[in-house]
């Protein structure tokens, strides 16, 4: 997208596509998983063409989730390393629950987003590995296969709950955020507020580059 006045480009297309592949496959797997786990939610498999079709849709969305999780890990691993300021940020709950006095400026991602990333990585890996066992459980020892079913649902509980918070914080709670994952652009004011350290680093870099020219 062309450069816009007063706007900062935060994400590139690769990042946005990876994010939505991960999010879309995760939510679709969650939907089909709920349809398979709760007999009361028969409406989901019914709308999707029956339980057999839903089983395969669940497996395929799981495969997409696994691939996009790997891509997300490669892309965000370094950006989501914790720094000293993150401790200060999380101790004040990012200013979301009470008035924070001296909230340190965040980098590309704040501490909460980083925690969410590592949460998805850890439990996402458990979900993928246990899901692979559940796909073909008869080639594994039965005790391991039984653990897989339990760990799969336990990790889904953990990730799904956090995901709701992630969706809320990215939309209603912080207007201007979700656009970063749609168009890639955010206002300069938004970046100063939410990605202060990242913006400052970026501007320093731009200055150095223009000075070099």
């Amino acid at each position: 997208m062309a450069k816009q006045e007063g706007m900062v480009r935060v994400t590139d297309a690769t990042e946005r596509i990876t994010h939505w592949l991960l999010a879309g496959s995760c939510l679709f797997a969650l939907l089909t998983g709920i349809g398979l786990m709760f007999h009361q939610w028969e409406i989901i498999p019914t709308l999707l063409g029956g339980y057999y079709a839903t089983k395969w849709m669940h497996i395929f969305s799981g495969v997409v989730f696994a691939v996009s999780l790997i891509a997300a890990m490669i892309m965000w691993w370094n950006e989501c390393r914790f720094v000293a300021d993150d401790g200060k940020w999380i101790l004040q709950a990012g200013g979301y629950l009470w008035e924070a006095k001296d909230l340190p400026p965040a980098g590309m991602y704040n501490c909460g987003q980083k925690i969410f990333f590592w949460f998805v990585v850890v439990f996402g890996i458990i979900i993928v590995l246990s899901g692979l066992v559940m796909w073909n459980p008869l080639i594994f020892p039965v005790a391991l296969a039984r653990w897989a079913y339990m760990l799969h649902v336990m990790s889904v509980f953990a990730v799904a709950s956090f995901t709701i918070a992630h969706i809320y914080l990215g939309t209603f709670a912080n207007p201007g955020t979700v656009q970063i994952m749609f168009t890639g652009w955010a206002t300069k004011a938004y970046c100063e507020e939410h990605k202060g350290r990242w913006l400052a680093d970026r501007e320093l870099k731009a200055e150095a580059e223009s000075a070099a020219e």
């Binding site: 709920i34 786990m37 709760f38 200013g95 979301y96 629950l97 649902v153 889904v156 509980f157 953990a158 799904a160 709950s161 956090f162 709701i164 918070a165 809320y168 209603f172 709670a173 912080n174 207007p175 201007g176 206002t187 004011a189 938004y190 507020e193 939410h194």
Partner: peptide, 24 residues
């Protein structure tokens, strides 16, 4: 799983009504 999804959604709604959105 459902309790977690519903519970966090409920907490989010409460947060929105008490604290409101964080407008830059």
């Amino acid at each position: 799983t459902l309790l977690g999804i519903g519970g966090v959604a409920g907490l989010a709604a409460l947060h929105y009504m008490i604290k409101g959105p964080h407008r830059v």
